[in-house]
């Protein structure tokens, strides 16, 4: 796949909850190996936008093409497409009934029919990557929030996805835990993972993002490189937003 080919292509995406329009016609392209950070005030629709990309939210209108599959179409096998899209949640959502190791190996064993030995080895190497090698047999509840989030990233990576979606991955963490998680994400970005990240971590956005998208009121109001958006914001609402979060 060429560098410039779109991994994700969203056309005129609309999402309504009853009469409430949350997304009002979004157009977005994410290229292979690109890191896109979505910022915006709360309630702007940025999380909803991210969640429609693997159909956790059913789109009301428009098209979403991921890896060449239009997932807005009802006859697309969404489970198959999701195997290639990793998702990391604000609240980690590790499976509470399983150990750390089982959390990571569940999907590969069930869906890729990997041999248990191979899946376990892969899980160990992923845990090593996120710095939690010793926690393979640990119970989820015994981990700190930061540790849980790193396991959640390892779990998503176990399916060897070519896109990773991050939905405010550090918002529920104690401040001293944030660094570890961001470090893992930076590593991933360096390895060339295609990533879409909803976050309030402007430092991360500046350092890692290829492109930053500002969403407000269900629309993309501005997009560009981190320098453009943070250095020279044009839209008054973006200026207002940046003022608020950077001058706390």
């Amino acid at each position: 796949m060429s560098e410039t080919k779109a991994k994700i292509k969203v056309d005129n995406l609309v999402k309504n909850y009853g009469d409430n329009a949350v997304l009002k016609g979004i157009n977005l392209e994410v290229k292979n190996n690109e890191v896109v950070v979505i910022i915006g005030p709360s309630g702007s629709g940025k999380s909803t936008l991210l969640r429609t990309l693997n159909k956790l939210e059913e789109p009301t209108g428009g098209s979403i093409v991921v890896d060449g599959y239009d997932i807005a179409k009802p006859d697309t096998d969404i489970n198959k497409v999701r195997e290639n899209i990793g998702m990391v949640f604000q609240h980690f959502n590790l499976f509470n009934n399983l150990t750390v190791g089982e959390n990571i190996t569940l999907a590969p064993l069930e869906l890729k029919k990997e041999a248990p030995k191979q899946a376990t080895e892969h899980a160990h190497s992923l845990l090593q990557m996120v710095g939690l090698e010793s926690k393979f047999d640990a119970r989820v509840q015994s981990l700190s929030g930061g540790q849980q989030q790193r396991v959640a990233i390892a779990r998503a990576l176990a399916m060897k996805p070519d896109v990773m979606l991050f939905d405010e991955p550090t918002s529920a963490l104690d401040p001293e835990m944030v660094g570890d998680v961001l470090a893992v994400m930076k590593d991933l970005a360096k390895q060339g993972m295609t990533m879409v990240v909803v976050t309030h971590e402007m430092g991360f956005a500046k350092e890692v993002a290829d492109r930053v998208i500002f969403v407000d009121d269900g629309q993309i109001l501005e997009e560009g490189t981190p320098d453009e958006l943070f250095g020279h914001p044009k839209h008054p609402r973006l200026q207002d937003f940046l003022n608020k979060i950077l001058n706390v």
Binding site: L106, A152, R155
Partner: peptide, 12 residues
């Protein structure tokens, strides 16, 4: 979130 996490891995 447990269901969302499972579904987002591709589990039916």
């Amino acid at each position: 979130g447990q269901m969302e996490a499972a579904r987002s891995l591709g589990l039916p």
